[in-house]
Design a protein around this nucleic acid. Structure first.
Length: 618
RNA sequence: CGGGAUGUGGCUCAGCCUGGUAGAGCACUGCGUUCGGGACGCAGGGGUCGGAGGUUCAAAUCCUCUCAUCCCGACCA
């Protein structure tokens, strides 16, 4: 072992050492124990319980593989222990996040996990956050919660410390465990209740400065996920009830993802399905001359759009689909073309409502006297929101607000009018892009990061103010920036695996090399492997040395399962030929290296690392 | 929250319908044989069947309650 630590990625102290890669003053005097202890491991002494069988709890690939690879174990619903190998992967992501956040000028803090109720009452979220907030009482019956997020705490901290514009901008972040009492935790680390999250908060003097902070974070996030070797998209997202003008989600593309992303095949437009828009042709509504007045037609058993369309022998797009919603602002009706789905997030945004739901038909009948299945926008007592595609439909069929009847010959502009039109539908694959002539496609994805421009929502509630250059008291403009650390590891596995196990991207791989000794009983083979192990160690290559007395098949299976990028194999056969077998987990490289000369090995390792960064920059 | 299902050694599951006092495979321990893609034999250790109550001479098995976990849904005019 060298007299200083030559590694960078695993050592937290590296972050404070500007002299790297030259020997740093701290390490010149001592060996970095961390690397000695964990980056070079003998399989026989590592707690790495791999599983041949799959525990029945696991549904998605990443969950299954993380259990099988001995990375995590479940303690309770949505609550997991991180085992050594899993923690190593988590730390890889954390450290990339740290480096990029620091590079972008943010500073790390660590905030309390348990937070007093008063703070949440002050922001108004104690009542609003609902059942997802895990509430606790201390021995004095004082109320607390286990932090699901830290806007309140950070704002409280900053309001006490920051008084002057000279102290801004400020960007603080932390990496810690949070708890959200999810309705339905699932998919292992993908949607846990307890999870590790990086959350950062920026404070700025004005909107323009806040915009710069936001942009910096956006760039930092792109670098982070690129470095993690992920195929991701930064998509426009609904800022939800948090408000604010900007919000981007960082979504890793994967079929098992819970989110849907619409993106343009021609330009770089990409948005969460909840927010995505499509272009509506400008074609004016065709006024049909001498169109007869709306006529009620008996349509028994025709509640669904398809049934109505079949009955009238028209396309679904010629039907106006009407739905009743209930929100904190009361009931309303939404009208969209029958071949589109209503997008509740857009409806809520259009209304400016806090919450929104579809009331059960019985409730609609009781409260409004309307028959669900035969609803229409004519002569109803509730506000009607009309989608901007309705005018294009022109003449349409809709419910008669009378069970078993629909109206035909209903004309936009004559029978139905609206002061304002809204975009209320979910885009479909093939719909025209709102920005260019391209078409939209839909992909599944996993949200691993989300950045918001918060504005003054929290600074106002919690009175986080400062004095500007003119001595005026002003509210700080905030932004918040989250990354799901565990979810990022899970997403990386979703995106990089095969039937044999994980295929870790280089940057996330806890070990870069799996060194297999196929003949641990042979002294000469073992001696050669030990020498190689020592050389790798000296070189600073993180290696898992499989020195177990297992049969070869077991070692191959485990190496594949663990997803270590490069596998080096030495057995009696290779030893006689004077070669080591080298095979990359991704199947790109499969070659024999001379046992006597290390140079080709170092070259191969350099290539592998380079391949990986090339991949991730695409 | 609604619907469905499941809880039996560390893991995967059988047994339950037709009550009679617990079984297989994997894993683990020992010995031997094996040894380049999750070996085999022999010998072992380990569970009182999620919990509580009830029926019964007798309950993993039947009944009631309860807890936990998993899956699906919460887009329908």
């Amino acid at each position: 072992m060298t007299s200083w630590c030559v590694l960078s990625t695993r050592c937290e102290q590296f972050l404070f050492c500007n002299l790297w890669p030259a020997p740093c003053p701290t390490w010149q005097t001592k060996v970095c124990r961390k690397h000695e202890d964990s980056s070079f491991m003998r399989f026989s002494s590592m707690h790495l319980p791999t599983l041949k069988e799959v525990p029945s709890e696991a549904e998605v690939v990443s969950h299954r593989l993380m259990l099988r690879a001995g990375m995590i174990r479940r303690l309770a619903a949505g609550i997991y222990s991180y085992l050594p190998y899993g923690l190593m992967a988590i730390r890889r992501v954390e450290n990339i996040v740290r480096e990029e956040m620091n590079r972008a000028g943010a500073q790390e803090v660590l905030l309390p996990a348990v937070q007093p109720a008063e703070l949440w009452q002050e922001s108004g979220r104690w009542d609003f956050y609902g059942r997802e907030l895990l509430r606790l009482k201390d021995r004095h019956q004082r109320e607390f919660c286990f932090g699901p997020t830290h806007e309140e705490v950070i704002t409280d901290l900053v309001r006490h410390e920051v008084r002057s514009y000279r102290q801004l901008p400020l960007n603080l972040y932390q990496i810690q465990t949070k708890f959200r009492d999810e309705i339905r935790p699932r998919f292992g680390l993908m949607r846990g209740r307890e999870f590790i999250m990086k959350d950062g908060y920026s404070f700025d003097v004005d909107d323009a400065a806040a915009g710069r902070s936001y942009q910096l974070m956006r760039e930092a996030y792109s670098r982070i996920f690129s470095r993690c070797g992920l195929n991701f998209r930064a998509v426009e997202a609904d800022s939800g009830t948090i408000g604010g003008s900007f919000s981007h989600e960082f979504v890793v593309l994967a079929d098992s993802g819970e989110d849907a992303v619409a993106s343009c095949s021609a330009c770089d437009y990409a948005a969460n399905i909840e927010k995505a828009e499509s272009r509506v042709p400008e074609a004016p509504a065709e006024i049909v001359e001498d169109l007869p007045a709306p006529e009620a037609v008996a349509t028994p058993e025709c509640a669904a759009v398809e049934e109505v369309a079949a009955f009238f022998q028209v396309a679904a797009g010629q039907i106006a689909k009407s739905m009743i919603f209930e929100s904190d602002l009361g009931f309303c009706m939404v009208v969209v073309p029958g071949d589109f789905e209503v997008n509740e997030v857009k409806v809520r945004a259009a209304l400016g409502a806090e919450w929104l739901e579809v009331p059960p038909p019985a409730r609609v009948a009781e409260e409004l006297g309307l028959p669900v299945g035969y609803l229409g926008p004519l002569e109803v007592s509730v506000p009607v929101l009309v989608d901007r595609r309705i005018p294009l439909v022109g003449t349409f069929v809709c419910g008669a607000n009378r069970a078993g009847y629909h109206l035909r010959n209903v004309a936009w502009g004559r029978d139905l009018k609206a002061d304002r039109l809204y975009d209320l539908v979910t885009v479909r694959p093939g719909d025209p892009c709102p920005r260019c002539e391209g078409k939209l496609r839909l992909d599944r994805g996993i949200e691993v990061g989300h950045i918001f421009k918060l504005g003054t929502k929290y600074s106002e509630k919690l009175k986080a103010t400062f004095l500007d250059a003119e001595g005026e008291e002003r509210l700080m403009i905030m932004g918040c920036y989250g990354i799901g650390i565990g979810r990022t590891v899970a997403a990386a596995i979703e995106q990089n695996h095969d039937e044999n196990g994980i295929i870790f991207p280089w940057a996330l791989a806890p070990f870069k090399v799996a060194l297999l000794n196929l003949d641990p009983k042979s002294e000469e083979v073992t001696a050669a492997v030990e020498t190689l192990y020592g050389d790798l160690e000296k070189r600073g290559v993180e290696v898992l040395y499989d020195d177990r007395g297992e049969r070869p098949g077991v070692k191959f299976k485990d190496a594949d399962l663990l997803g270590i990028p490069l596998r080096l194999t030495l057995g009696r056969k290779g030893f006689k030929k004077g070669i080591i077998e080298a095979r990359s987990r991704n199947g790109v490289h499969d070659l024999e290296l001379p046992l006597a000369d290390r140079t080709p090995l170092w070259d191969l390792l350099r290539d592998l690392e380079a391949d990986d960064s090339r991949l991730s920059s695409q």
